[in-house]
Design a protein around this nucleic acid. Structure first.
Lengths: 233, 233
DNA sequence: CCGCGCAATTGACAATTATCAATCGTGGAA
DNA sequence: TTCCACGATTGATAATTGTCAATTGCGCGG
């Protein structure tokens, strides 16, 4: 679909000690001193929209934590399409199968311009063994993956397409006065297990009904109440 | 739907040292001596079909490992239906959210007569900290939950209902000369995100086409080749 | 400014699936 | 054995969704 295979761009060695989102990510339990003791590099990457962090089936040397932006984990279908199985945002972790010595289970692509930290497998495994707070944070991230996958099953893959779309918009958080840049119709389809055309029709209808307003920029704002009602069925 | 809320029946204190499936479950890395040092009881339960292991939202004192049988993890929908988000079989673990101090995220019910071991939270947390092989096994189970959830999204919630049903039958393993007792049509619907009637129609059609044969007992055998072809789309 | 390219939208129609209702089949209780 | 209860199956019809094709809208490069 997209020959646009940008790669993430190296921005610099991560400065975890002054990271503004450190309390949301894996290393929130580490002291500055402990952070200094990390010998191997944790790199700070900028992933522009459509950049590929990693591809399914390739050897997995690193785990990624999301500092900002939106990342999709997808699986390619035999018929040429794709199915998105997870959306990752600030504080989420991608590629934890790395820690079990497995190859990547998905392809990770930035849906929006994103900033991520790339943590080598060895670094995280050592911290997991030596630092209880990192260990606990890891278990929590694993559980978060499970919870998010369950949400995809229950909320985004159950019921009529209109209700699923409403739940997707709520999940994306474009509600009230908190505008968001939405994924393409194609990605929405891959998120909900419907076709691009159906996704487009539903979104167009939502706009006509006033449930979704285009903002000044490329962002949109949604009607919390109306969507919640639709999501019910 | 089912007022048939059987509870699991206590069979005895678990004898992990002589457990015939120990190599598939969490404690495969422990020596007999280490097993003896477990002070708190690991109970061996028999869960007859329809028995409820635990219910969503209740406090979670224990993790369950499946020794035999088939367990479903379900979530109740606002419209009265249910959505099954996982199927657990020999070696799988239910209720790991327990280890993070959370309440159960699902309701766990036996789809077939099953044997399970109930492991208190404290036991598993202590072993996780003291025994690397248990720690590793735990991470693997967590990853397995993620993988199984992904399978539900990609294989069982994507594409037309007929293809999903074919993939479900393959997943259940009722292929070749390995017969299986299938879930009810209602449960199949909850597994695939379709109605009971649609599940019934598809299964009836599979039988007519010779893709599924009733066995002598209540079990069925499926045509591997034919189902695999259907699963493609 | 124009026009190209790509995504979004829309239309028409076919296929799939849901809904509601009735019937069938079977195992278990009386 | 007969009858009942319940799950499975089937039918008829409406609603939803997919498919294929055309058109619109818009940003960006020339």
């Amino acid at each position: 679909m997209k020959p646009n295979c940008t790669n993430p761009e190296w921005v610099g060695r991560a400065k975890c000690a002054v990271c503004e989102v450190r309390n949301f990510v894996l290393f929130s339990g580490l002291t500055t001193h402990e952070l200094d003791s990390i010998l191997q590099p944790v790199d700070n990457l900028h992933a522009p929209q459509h950049a590929v962090l990693y591809e399914k089936g390739t050897v997995a040397p690193s785990v990624y934590t999301v500092r900002s932006g939106l990342i999709k984990l997808k699986i390619d279908l035999p018929n040429g399409g794709q199915r998105i199985v997870r959306l990752l945002r600030q504080g989420d972790v991608a590629g934890m199968e790395t820690l079990l010595g497995e190859r990547y289970h998905h392809t990770a692509i930035a849906l929006q311009d994103s900033d991520v930290c790339r943590i080598p497998r060895e670094v995280l495994m050592r911290l997991d063994q030596t630092n209880p707070s990192v260990h606990q944070a890891l278990l929590q991230r694993w559980q978060r993956s499970v919870d998010q996958a369950d949400h995809f099953i229950v909320a985004l893959s159950t019921g009529p397409a209109e209700a699923r779309m409403a739940r997707l918009l709520i999940t994306l958080g474009c509600i009230g006065d908190h505008p968001e840049t939405l994924p393409s119709r194609e990605d929405m389809g891959a998120l909900l297990g419907i076709t691009t055309e159906t996704a487009s029709r539903i979104m167009a209808e939502f706009k006509r009904r006033g449930l979704v307003h285009a903002n000044s920029g490329s962002e949109v704002v949604c009607d919390q109440r109306g969507l919640t009602q639709l999501a019910g069925q």
